[in-house]
Design a protein around this nucleic acid. Sequence first.
DNA 1: CGACTTGTTGACCTAGCTCAACAATAGTGG
DNA 2: CCACTATTGTTGAGCTAGGTCAACAAGTCG
Lengths: 243, 243
Amino acid sequence: MNALTPLPEATVVPMAGDCALLPDHALFVGLCAAEQERIAQTFSIHRFNDGAPILLDGAPMVGVIQSGALARVSRSGIGMQTVGLLLCGDLVSPAGPRTSGVLAMALDRTAIFGTSAEHFRALLREVPRLQLNYLDLVATELQATRGWYTMLGRKTAPERVASLILRLSRQSIPGSEGLIDLLLTRDRIGSLLGLKMETVSRQIRAFSKAGVIEMHSPTKIKVLDKAALVRATGDIWRETSRL
Amino acid sequence: MNALTPLPEATVVPMAGDCALLPDHALFVGLCAAEQERIAQTFSIHRFNDGAPILLDGAPMVGVIQSGALARVSRSGIGMQTVGLLLCGDLVSPAGPRTSGVLAMALDRTAIFGTSAEHFRALLREVPRLQLNYLDLVATELQATRGWYTMLGRKTAPERVASLILRLSRQSIPGSEGLIDLLLTRDRIGSLLGLKMETVSRQIRAFSKAGVIEMHSPTKIKVLDKAALVRATGDIWRETSRL
DNA sequence: CGACTTGTTGACCTAGCTCAACAATAGTGG
DNA sequence: CCACTATTGTTGAGCTAGGTCAACAAGTCG
């Protein structure tokens, strides 16, 4: 699931103590006890601080986000572009053979249940069922990514911002009722959505003035009128009839 | 590889008669004779006419394009959007579990070496090596798609059109030296690139006037100055320094 | 030949970028 | 604690790429 993918409702059970070896995630469905055991031996929870690159001894990793959030950033020259956002329950994958400078970075204190890409490859060979699950996830992600970016290329600024807020609203700050953390500066939101910082700021303020959201601090907001936000994404009436 | 993916140099050997069972494609590398045999039993060449949906008895198919080209179109309501382009050597995959109204359509007389998605699934279970290859391809495609759309969201109209022409220039009409077929109407190119028909027309004409391309008919063009086109894609100096 | 699809061109308008000033916030060292 | 600086966010005033509307040309197919 890439940036803002609207589909996947996160379904992570927080490692229920002694009863389950693995979190409840699509990656692990349908595995027998022995297979689960094998995976549990290799996988473990890794924690990253805000801003830390998601690497295990300098190598990429594969896993499932348990808490926190990641940004996929791409370095080209001096500049840095945010090209994707991964939230709780999303699969972290090393983005294919050609990593091409794209790197995952923690946006918060983040816990990932996973292992190194290398070990994961070995696991895939050993556990065919895991391979099928992984393939499904990657294929689904491909589909979602395609869909998302196809829309993104055609969305207006307010539509993009609404989509992002909606995606983030799945993940509210624990405790504080409905309050969500944007996690990113205006500049990085812009980089993610293909907009300029100023435009992002204007759109967020516009939603605030319209009473759709409430701003507590620049990065902490609360959604007041979810229906309005959904409408603002423009996902429904995109019937611009093209041949 | 999705729409316009710039990377993948097609490497398809045209089923060299009796010596090779399978075409030379990344999907089939590293397979033993028995495995190749097994796959060759299931896979076969299917031909589609211009405009035909890529289906086998109404079901989606998986395969490798041998000649011709496909468009990925998405029906929403009445309208039809072109959301991707697959050329010779590209993998045709059923786009994940949720096909969500996206369908492949032949743009030309097109030959695909493949089988139904269902049979392919069975094959994957039988031939682990095929599964690994397929996983690699899907992961690579995911990566390429992500990269492509990330850029697309930020590219200007001339940059988008230049990218498309460059992608298509890999596939020149056999015989006619360097002449390429756009395969799509202006409207559909617009739909693919997120531009309006008029804008596409203007950009193509601009390239023509600048002497970068030569127009023989609206859909048949020849690239005169490839370097200029490459420059026009803006891929190189995209150092807009963002944090 | 006439009807229909596809492409071209011009005139205009608007969303979002650019530039620029300024406000709010968070550190930091005295 | 306060000044001092750096980062991040806000707001306004133009400017421009590309969308919109509209007329027309060029193929194309019966």
